[in-house]
Amino acid sequence: MTGEARQLLLSRIRDVPDYPQPGVVFKDITPLLADPEAFSVLTESLAELCVRHGATKIVGLEARGFILGAPVAIRAGLGFIPVRKAGKLPGATLSQAYELEYGTAEIEVHAEDLATGDRVMIIDDVLATGGTAAAAMELIRRGGADVAGLAVLMELGFLGGRDRLAPALAGAPLEALLAL
């Protein structure tokens, strides 16, 4: 991605101080999504990463990973698989619990959506602590597929997610369009 493209994306991310709690600066991507030029640059950049890493399917993590992953899948000519919070998918699912700073959470995927030979790229908006991404990688592997990589719009490096994810990535690439 060019420096000009990075600057466009950065210019469309709004900082919201003290949200959702005092001391946190929330990175709001809704201005980026509302700008068709910036959203197109983001979609194209993520689609190029998926193709470069040989992905055959895309997983989007609830909820902003759905917003980003679905158009990326269309642009890259790949299938899209939603990874949802527990209890949101009908039928047979694979589930994975993971730790949060304040407790635990659980995500699920339809069991039949993943197959041996699939190379799955995970798409999300932010890499923070890496818990959700690590759980998604476990689900993908339990479904018989391979992790092609993880691609995010922005990485919040000060939270250490990249280091925590290294074992779960097992050599798969982690691509962040923006490092903050």
Rank of each mutant, 00 (worst) to 15 (best):
Thr2Lys: 13
Thr2Glu: 15
Glu4Cys: 02
Glu4Lys: 13
Ala5Ser: 13
Ala5His: 08
Arg6Thr: 08
Arg6Pro: 10
Gln7Phe: 07
Leu8Gln: 04
Leu8Ala: 05
Leu10Arg: 15
Ser11Tyr: 03
Arg14Met: 09
Asp15Glu: 15
Pro17Glu: 15
Asp18Ser: 09
Asp18Cys: 04
Tyr19Ala: 00
Pro20Thr: 11
Pro22Cys: 01
Gly23Ala: 04
Val24Phe: 06
Val25His: 14
Val25Thr: 15
Val25Ile: 15
Ile29Tyr: 00
Leu33Pro: 03
Asp35Asn: 15
Asp35Val: 12
Ala38Pro: 05
Leu42Trp: 01
Glu44Thr: 15
Glu48Cys: 10
Leu49Gly: 02
Arg52Gly: 14
Arg52Glu: 13
Gly54Thr: 08
Gly54Pro: 04
Lys57Pro: 05
Val59His: 01
Val59Lys: 00
Gly60Gln: 01
Leu61Trp: 07
Leu61Glu: 06
Glu62Pro: 01
Glu62Thr: 09
Gly65Asn: 10
Gly65Leu: 13
Ile67Tyr: 02
Leu68Ile: 13
Leu68Pro: 01
Leu68Asn: 12
Pro71Asn: 00
Val72Tyr: 00
Ala73Tyr: 01
Ala73His: 00
Ile74Ala: 02
Arg75Phe: 08
Ala76Glu: 04
Ala76Ser: 10
Ala76Cys: 04
Ala76Lys: 08
Ala76Gln: 00
Gly77Trp: 09
Gly77Phe: 06
Leu78Ala: 00
Gly79Val: 06
Phe80Glu: 12
Phe80Ala: 11
Ile81Tyr: 06
Lys85Trp: 11
Lys85Asn: 03
Gly87Ala: 03
Lys88Ile: 06
Lys88Cys: 11
Leu89Arg: 05
Gly91Ile: 07
Gly91Trp: 04
Gly91Tyr: 04
Gly91Gln: 05
Gly91Lys: 06
Ala92Ser: 12
Ser95Arg: 12
Ser95Glu: 08
Gln96Trp: 09
Tyr98Cys: 10
Glu99Gly: 13
Glu101Lys: 09
Tyr102Trp: 12
Thr104Met: 12
Thr104Ala: 11
Ala105Arg: 03
Ile107Leu: 02
Ile107Tyr: 05
Val109Asp: 02
Val109Arg: 06
Ala111Lys: 14
Ala111Pro: 08
Leu114Cys: 10
Val120Thr: 13
Ile122Gln: 02
Ile123Asn: 07
Asp124Thr: 10
Asp125Met: 03
Val126Asp: 01
Leu127His: 08
Ala128Ile: 10
Thr129His: 11
Thr129Ser: 09
Gly130Glu: 02
Ala134Asn: 04
Ala135Phe: 14
Ala136Trp: 06
Met137Val: 11
Glu138Val: 14
Glu138Pro: 09
Glu138Leu: 10
Glu138Ile: 13
Leu139Val: 09
Leu139Lys: 05
Arg141Ser: 12
Arg142Gln: 10
Gly144Asp: 03
Gly144Tyr: 08
Ala145Tyr: 07
Ala145Arg: 00
Val147Thr: 09
Val147Gly: 07
Ala148His: 09
Gly149Met: 10
Met154Lys: 06
Met154Gln: 03
Leu156Cys: 05
Phe158Glu: 14
Phe158Asn: 12
Gly160Glu: 05
Gly160Leu: 12
Arg162Ser: 14
Arg164Thr: 03
Arg164Glu: 01
Pro167Tyr: 02
Leu169Phe: 09
Ala170Arg: 04
Leu174Thr: 09
Leu174Phe: 15
Glu175Pro: 03
Glu175Ser: 12
Glu175Ile: 14
Ala179Thr: 10
Ala179Glu: 13
Leu180Arg: 06
